[in-house]
């Protein structure tokens, strides 16, 4: 987010990135003018509902797009100073795995069902690091220990269907980590898993991220997941980042009405049972013909006519790190509200 205050460039710099898809109804802008920086050793959470563009964003960053995708030239993805979009096919193959790696949502479909785990795990090790079979197997066993797979020798000879969902996701993580990438992108890595297994996998990713000091982008629709495991959060809506802040700032001083509405719609276990949920009315915008102004305006509780005049810019609220795409960010409402309420609450800290 922040303009570089330190002289060294960030690990990943994304500027004004847009991705569109040709559809029968016209061009659909799934990602629309996204910019952010990510430093080494940081974990960024990208939150949003289905169709908000979060998966397309990271696929564009990885250069893993379908043939009907359109990426305008003024969008930039600079990874360690190099524009990812300029890589040719051969450079790209050496780039994936060693520089950036990705963990997908469904471990069953991202593993090859007719190849043994060992073969899939050593494939990229042999290709990228040029190790022979024995050395690659050695490294594979090491990785399996690192991701907490019991009986690794036996697992190497098994097929994906012989493993549980959590174990398969550990294998996928091991493959992603095999060539020590600088950036790991995890796209909904735990959505298909049970809550206890989710906790294990997120703890595992967090531990490995701290040990290796790599950067991580964690994509999820679950605000609970990002709250516990990230340093900063970007909230996406309608292909745009609508709020971006350090994790603690976002939850303390959320500024965008969409972030507020998203949080209020979660059935939290600390709420009493039968509490009525604050559903967000309406539907996400049609990205072939998005609303003219703020994309969230049609569903927003604080909407004014002004909101529909033009797309709001990302502006700083509170401090420079915290930005929000809203002409009337909530922080200002709350300051006013608290100033009125505060004298009546002597006991509050």
């Amino acid at each position: 987010m922040s303009e570089s205050t330190n002289p060294s460039p960030p690990l990943l710099r994304v500027r004004n990135l847009s991705t569109g898809f040709e559809t029968p109804r016209g061009l659909l802008w799934a990602v629309d003018g996204v910019s952010f920086d990510l430093d080494q050793g940081r974990t960024m959470g990208v939150v949003g509902e289905s169709g908000s563009g979060k998966s397309v964003l990271v696929r564009t960053v990885m250069n893993l797009l379908a043939a009907n995708a359109v990426v305008p030239d003024d969008g930039e993805v600079l990874f360690r100073g190099r524009n990812v979009r300029d890589l040719d096919a051969i450079e790209e193959r050496h780039f994936w795995g060693t520089e950036m790696a990705m963990v997908f949502q469904d471990p069953m479909t991202s593993l090859n069902p007719v190849k043994r785990i060992g073969r899939q795990l050593t494939e990229s090790i042999r290709f990228h690091l040029g190790l022979d079979d024995d050395a690659a197997t050695e490294r594979a066993l090491e990785l399996m220990n690192q991701v907490g797979i019991p009986e690794p020798k036996k697992r190497l000879r098994q097929y994906p269907h012989e493993l549980s969902g959590g174990m398969r996701q550990r294998v996928v993580i091991a493959i992603a980590l095999s060539c020590s990438p600088k950036l790991l992108i995890a796209d909904e890595p735990t959505t298909a898993l049970d809550v206890t297994v989710q906790r294990q996998i997120l703890d595992l990713l967090g531990r490995i991220q701290r040990e290796t000091d790599m950067a991580m982008i964690l994509i999820t629709h679950d605000l609970g997941v990002v709250a516990s495991y990230t340093d900063e959060i970007a909230v996406m809506y309608g292909g745009q980042i609508v709020e971006h802040a350090a994790t603690s700032d976002l939850f303390e001083d959320l500024a965008h009405p969409y972030t507020e509405a998203l949080l209020a719609s979660i059935p939290r276990i600390d709420l009493p049972s039968h509490a009525r949920l604050q559903a967000i009315g309406g539907r996400p915008p049609d990205m072939v013909a998005p609303p003219p102004g703020c994309r969230f305006a049609p569903r927003c509780a604080y909407r004014t006519d002004e909101c529909e005049a033009a797309i709001p810019e990302l502006i700083s609220v509170a401090d420079r790190m915290h930005t929000c795409r809203c002409i009337r960010p909530l922080v200002s409402h709350r300051d006013v509200a608290e100033a009125v309420v505060a004298p009546n609450r002597p006991g509050s800290s």
Binding site: Q198, S228, F251, D270
Partner: peptide, 13 residues
């Protein structure tokens, strides 16, 4: 099960 749920509040992490 209850402890495994990620809480949408970083101060409770």
């Amino acid at each position: 099960l209850i402890e495994s749920i990620p809480h949408p509040d970083p101060s409770a992490r």
